[in-house]
Measured scan of single mutants.
Amino acid sequence: AEKTGIVNVSSSLNVREGASTSSKVIGSLSGNTKVTIVGEEGAFYKIEYKGSHSYVAKEYIKDIKDE
């Protein structure tokens, strides 16, 4: 089941290729951006990003809701 969340950062949140802080950064999301969460892996959520799937750190996503 998909969930949505809100990016909870003051500046921007790195979007990564994989579920690791050493993964390549492929983009960023600004605070209060709504994201669609399709899964989770460790400390990361797998999200829909620009037509494919990428990862963001869970600690920076708030207001998780089931869609």
Score class of each variant (00 low, 15 high):
I61L: 06
G51P: 01
I47A: 00
G5I: 05
S20A: 07
R16P: 01
I64A: 07
D63G: 08
T4Q: 09
S10W: 06
A57P: 15
G42N: 07
L13C: 15
K65W: 10
S20V: 04
Y49R: 00
S23W: 02
Y55H: 01
N32T: 06
G5L: 04
S23G: 05
A1H: 14
Y60T: 05
E67Y: 10
S20W: 06
G39C: 06
T21F: 15
S12I: 12
I47E: 01
K24T: 07
D66F: 15
A57V: 08
D63K: 10
N32G: 15
K62T: 14
R16Q: 11
S20K: 06
D63I: 15
D63S: 10
G51H: 05
N14D: 15
S12D: 08
Y60C: 15
E59H: 08
K24Y: 04
S28F: 13
I37T: 00
F44M: 04
G18A: 14
G31D: 11
V7I: 08
S52V: 11
D66I: 14
V35M: 02
S10E: 13
I64C: 09
E67N: 13
I61G: 00
G31Q: 11
E48Y: 11
G51W: 04
T36N: 09
S11T: 14
A57Q: 13
K3W: 15
G42K: 05
G51C: 07
I61H: 01
V7Q: 02
R16K: 06
E59C: 10
V7R: 02
V35R: 00
K24A: 10
S20G: 06
Y60L: 07
A1L: 14
Y49V: 03
E41K: 07
K3H: 08
I6V: 10
T4L: 09
G42Q: 04
K24M: 08
E59N: 07
R16I: 05
N8T: 12
G39K: 03
V56P: 00
K58H: 02
E41R: 06
S30K: 14
D66N: 12
G39H: 03
V9Y: 06
A19T: 06
F44V: 01
G18F: 14
S10F: 08
D63F: 15
D63P: 12
L29S: 00
T21E: 14
L29R: 01
I61T: 01
V9W: 06
D63V: 15
A1S: 13
R16L: 15
A19E: 01
N32D: 08
S10P: 11
N32W: 12
E67C: 14
S23V: 02
G51L: 04
H53Q: 08
I47K: 00
E67L: 13
N8A: 14
E40Q: 08
V7Y: 02
E48N: 09
S23M: 04
T33P: 02
K46T: 06
V56L: 04
Y49K: 00
L29N: 00
Y45R: 01
S20I: 04
E17N: 09
A43K: 09
S23N: 04
K34V: 13
D63M: 15
V56E: 00
G27I: 03
S28K: 14
H53I: 14
E41S: 09
T4R: 09
I61W: 03
I47Q: 00
T36W: 13
N14F: 09
G31T: 13
G18L: 11
S23F: 05
E40W: 06
F44I: 00
E2L: 15
V38N: 03
V7E: 01
I47G: 01
K62S: 14
D66E: 13
V35F: 03
L29Q: 01
I6D: 02
S52Q: 12
A43C: 12
G27H: 02
S12A: 10
Y60I: 03
T36L: 11
K65M: 11
L13E: 03
K34R: 13
E40C: 09
I61Y: 02
V25G: 02
T21N: 14
V35K: 00
T21A: 13
I61R: 00
S30I: 12
G5C: 07
F44D: 03
G18N: 10
Y49A: 00
N32K: 08
S52W: 07
S23E: 04
N14W: 09
N14C: 15
T36H: 11
T33Q: 09
V35Y: 02
V25S: 05
N8W: 09
N8H: 11
K65D: 11
E17T: 07
K50D: 10
I37N: 00
T33W: 06
K46D: 03
K3P: 03
S28A: 11
E2Y: 15
I6N: 04
S54Y: 15
V9I: 11
E40V: 08
K24N: 08
A19F: 05
K58T: 03
K62W: 10
A57G: 09
F44K: 00
V38H: 05
H53A: 06
G51K: 05
G27K: 01
S54W: 09
S30N: 11
K46V: 14
G39L: 03
T33Y: 06
Y55L: 01
S10Y: 07
I37H: 00
E17K: 07
V7A: 05
E40A: 07
A19M: 04
E40F: 05
G39N: 04
D63A: 11
G31K: 14
K58F: 03
A57N: 09
S28Y: 13
Y49N: 01
T36F: 12
T33H: 06
Y45M: 03
A19C: 06
G39T: 03
S11N: 12
Y55A: 00
G42E: 06
I37W: 01
V25L: 06
V9T: 13
I26K: 04
L29T: 02
V25W: 04
L13N: 03
K3G: 06
N8G: 08
V15T: 04
T33I: 08
K50N: 14
Y49M: 03
K62D: 14
S52H: 10
L13H: 03
L29V: 08
A19P: 15
I37R: 00
S30Q: 14
E40T: 07
D66H: 12
K58E: 01
V38K: 05
K34A: 07
I6P: 02
L29E: 01
A1I: 14
E40G: 03
K46I: 15
S30C: 14
K24C: 07
K24Q: 08
L13T: 08
G18E: 12
N8F: 09
G39W: 03
D63N: 09
E2G: 15
T33G: 04
D63E: 14
Y60Q: 07
L29K: 01
E2N: 15
H53G: 05
I64K: 06
E40Y: 05
Y60N: 08
V38Q: 03
V15S: 01
V9P: 08
V9Q: 07
T33V: 10
E41T: 07
I26T: 05
N14E: 15
G31L: 10
K58Y: 02
L13W: 02
G31H: 15
K62M: 12
I26M: 07
G51A: 05
V7H: 02
S30H: 10
E2T: 15
S22I: 08
N8R: 13
L13M: 07
V38P: 00
V9D: 06
I64Y: 10
K62F: 10
I6M: 08
